[in-house]
Amino acid sequence: MDLPDILPKGWDLADDVPEGVDIEALLRDAKPSEENLTNFLISAKKLAVLDIPPREMIVDPLIATNSVNMMFAERGTGKTWVALAMAKAVATGEDFLAYHVPEPRPVLLIDGEMPLADLTERIQAMRADDIDNLQILSSEVMHHEFHALNIGREDDQHLITSMLDQLADEGRKPSLIILDNLSSLRRGVEENDNSALDGLLQWLIALRHKGYATLVVHHAGKLGNQRGASRLEDPLDTTIKLTLADAPKGDGAAVNMEFTKTRNVKPNPAYLTMELVEGDDGILDWDYGETTKVVPQDHTLRIIYGGPAGDGSKRFAKQKELVDAVGLKPPAISKHLSALRHDELVDKKGLTVTEKGKERLRDVFPKETFD
């Protein structure tokens, strides 16, 4: 619409309507905007000088503002405990495990299945019960007082978005939204149907464009990957995978954490083993230690070091000898050697482990000796 000249300089719709301006007449004369995509084009030159706020790190370098993220694990692995630990860390500005939290930010936890008593017990056990920065939307409260949310439905997506808008108006906009968990919050759909994800993915992307970071807590499938349709991973910035650790030190849950997708800087450390322990103050928290994940090439490297005799007294003369010793097919050994030589762990032309390769062996096999 063409606005009248009598409007004061700097006037906008948040201000009172000036005397003499007929809003109803303006609306009657308004013309539909042309649906022309050229109106939205931005040249690269103009884009380069736009004042666009940079994305900030909420958990550095795991979770950034304006991002969609996932954490998945098998049932009983402790993913809700890890999610609560991240929520507490972000809300208080404390570091999350080995990763830096630059400043405290508001967090919203949308719970999909936990009994309120269990949720309360866990929050109290982690001493997160006095944090104003952590808001919780409980599934049990919703069930009794309204209805169970289903983020697969457009109506419930709109309800959550409206709530977020209201929190933003009140100065309580959450920086991080944790959805725990996808299966309980999205019901009545076939998980393996890629097309059924359209509405959910568009909503998560819309939340990203509105400035929110989301962490979707999900289950692992039979093969160890995230359960359901693979398209779910397409818009993700960071994917965190949790697996049960082989040998916990104490009585608490022991979990391995690794990252199967990252758009930002690769996390350092890239692999953690952690255990849920009770401290002297009675607070439950994750005790962690950085570990080096053993990959298949490491076993090949160890066999190269040992040589035909297995004690390092003699080197392999030909690649075929190595193939027979490792027990893999020649193409697989060729890939291993290519990777080991690229990382300068094995000599470029021979089958000799370098000093850097010996350091790698000491890291991944600490109970063995590599001189």
Rank of each mutant, 00 (worst) to 15 (best):
D2I: 15
P104E: 03
V346G: 00
R231K: 11
L215Q: 09
L3M: 01
D132N: 13
G279A: 07
W203P: 04
I151A: 03
D165E: 15
E233Q: 08
K320Y: 05
D169N: 11
T239H: 10
A213I: 03
P296G: 08
M142Y: 08
I110K: 03
A44D: 14
G306I: 00
A325M: 05
G282D: 12
V364Y: 14
V107T: 02
K318G: 05
F96V: 15
I160F: 05
S334Q: 10
K266M: 09
E190T: 14
I23H: 02
G171H: 01
I177P: 10
Y305E: 07
E355F: 05
L201E: 11
I6S: 12
V59T: 04
N181A: 04
I160M: 05
A253R: 07
R302F: 06
L276C: 14
T80L: 01
L137H: 01
K249W: 09
P8G: 06
T80A: 04
I131K: 01
E191P: 00
A339C: 04
T65N: 08
N133E: 14
G306Q: 03
S184R: 10
D198Y: 13
W11Y: 08
L119D: 02
A44S: 14
A30V: 09
H209D: 15
S338D: 15
D156G: 06
D193P: 02
S230V: 15
D343V: 00
